[in-house]
Design a binder for these strands. Structure first.
Lengths: 338, 338
DNA sequence: TCTTCCAGGTTAAACGATTAAGCGATGGCC
DNA sequence: GGCCATCGCTTAATCGTTTAACCTGGAAGA
């Protein structure tokens, strides 16, 4: 492989000049500039990444994949990652994927990534409230951004507007005439959980309804959790006529449970999900849900992180992406009282 | 950050000794060894990646994501990538993701990745017959492995056993009593296309049937392509009683077209897909399909590439992963002649 | 006793870039 | 004419490792 020395030799300049030309730093005559570029072309020169990043940044963003089973197989994560790669590319960066195994913990891996200078910064996912990772990373001086609601000072957060989304979804159900609206919430230690619940409560409050605590059930995140939660709701003396689920997977589970109970989803009982997974449009009946712009979030996160690393972020405020409500076939006016 | 010098100083040895201890090369007394390790611990030393890979490999595998719209959103690709990251991690490597944009071509990006020494080798996807990428990468001396059927000498290939899979699927349909079995094939410039068709033809041949060329239609890869292809088959004077689709997406399209034509899938006409996408089990009726072990393929690819890079591959032969047939509800004996 | 060898270190030269500091020529200004 | 800036370039230090080559003291073999 050709090195910068070879280029310098051929262009009959010093290596410094070559570097100046290539990086656009320093003052160089047009003539020399051309000579250098010709040499670069002729030798098919590409700067050695390691050598370069010995002095500068690595121009690499890092993401550590959770060890758990779905991992990237989760379409939500996959699209986010696609966005991350795109966003990084747009600012001439790359994305380094590290897979946490049973052996090596996520947090440790993240620390190693920045300590070894492999990456300039990290994207953090699935934040919990008071997440330990964030604290240790910030302590280590690692730039990072997190996907989700703001969780720690010093770590900018970009996420979906769960509060607004939940509010809009609930309003839609209210507008259809529902009065007993249940919420299947995420585990409360997930940072995303609280704002969603908040939006739901706000909408009820605006409508002058007092929320029934029995109608709010905290679930996990999986389809099975959705089933369990829904069964719980159906067992109530006065079951809900509409359900808002904080995740599409939960909603799928809820649909399952409703059908098992002999209820027609979108007729006997309304349902709204969150995420708009690919499956949401294909399932029968198609699910009304809040669309999470996953790819856009990925892009925004990457861009924010890249700028943060270069201290060019200008202290942009934590932003929230809107969750538009996609109305399909699982929402309808409540059935007439029999 | 602490450097190797700091460690050397604290352990009162030379930097060389530290390096020897850390890499397990060179002979070192147990006593010094311990001193060094203590210093490493005390200073929380992590070797600087760039500095290290100035002399050695980058211990990084590369993947360039296709520019197209589905990209990582395609669950098949996402799971493969998950496997790649896992496989890389198992051999102490990382995975670098590069996103090809409209601006920057895939092939160029791949070349840049290896020319700049950012990655030690590349994983190639979606190979075409006589793929230009492979040729240029090999010419550039870049180690690479490709996912799919063998496509070029010098580039080991790991893929699914399309031929065996198609054969098994076709046999299953034959065993159910079908005689007019159609094939919706992939575009013939995709390297995966031919073996699949071959397996289909073999099974027919074994059964003493002569294949009807009209029953083999070449489609694209999308659901829409599946619709078109199926409509074409249904328009035949004597339509098939069973269809083998070379991809689940194609199969979904075919289901759509069948339903539109008033046919009950898995009753009036049988259907087998390929891939076992998550959707396959959830669609109605659940799709009989060949399960592609995507994660396993990813892991195998990463491992193969990592070994190849270190010339430790021992010339392992190109391997093929079995595609087990997952029987669900879209296959049944043909309807009685009316 | 004198080599020879080896284990267990050290020294210093890479690796391939970036970049601060320096340096000669040119031109402007007083 | 003398002085100072500025331009365009070079020199050389630096980043943090790895590793070939060398050194040294003691044990083993002759």
């Amino acid at each position: 492989m050709a090195t910068i020395k070879d280029v310098a030799q051929r262009a009959r300049v010093s290596t410094a000049t070559v570097s100046y030309v290539l990086n656009g730093t320093g003052a160089v005559t047009e003539a020399t500039r051309r000579r250098v570029l010709e040499a670069v072309e002729a030798l098919n020169y590409h700067p050695h990444h390691a050598a370069r990043s010995l002095r500068t940044r690595a121009r690499t963003l890092g993401l550590v994949l959770p060890a758990g089973s779905p991992g990237l197989a989760d379409p939500a994560l996959a699209e986010l990652v696609a966005g991350l790669a795109e966003g990084a590319a747009a600012l001439d960066h790359f994305l380094l994927l590290a897979s946490a195994g049973p052996e090596v913990a996520e947090a440790e891996l993240a620390l190693e990534l920045v300590a070894t200078n492999r990456v300039d910064g990290l994207v953090l996912l699935d934040l919990r409230v008071d997440d330990a990772r964030v604290a240790s990373l910030i302590a280590a001086g690692a730039p990072c951004v997190c996907a989700g609601p703001p969780v720690a000072p010093g770590c900018p957060a970009l996420g979906y507007d769960f509060e607004g989304g939940a509010r809009e979804a609930t309003r839609h159900l209210l507008a259809l005439g529902h009065r007993r609206i249940a919420l299947i919430a995420l585990p409360s230690d997930l940072a995303a959980s609280e704002p969603f619940t908040e939006g739901y409560l706000q909408a009820l409050d605006c409508a002058g309804l007092v929320p029934d605590p029995a109608l709010v059930v905290e679930a996990g995140t999986s389809e099975d959790d959705g089933i369990t939660a829904m069964q719980e709701l159906l067992a109530l003396p006065e079951p809900p006529t509409a359900v808002l689920a904080a995740g599409d997977a939960l909603a799928f589970g809820a649909m399952h449970a409703m059908r098992d109970a002999g209820l027609a989803v979108g007729c006997d009982v309304s349902l709204i999900g969150m995420g708009d997974l690919p499956l949401a449009a294909h399932i029968d009946p198609p699910l009304t849900t809040l669309r999470a712009p996953r790819r856009a979030l990925g892009r925004a996160l990457a861009r924010r992180l890249a700028l943060l690393v270069e201290r060019r972020d200008g202290g942009a405020p934590d932003a929230l992406l809107r969750l538009p409500l996609i109305i399909r076939r699982t929402t309808a006016p409540p059935p007439r009282r029999g």
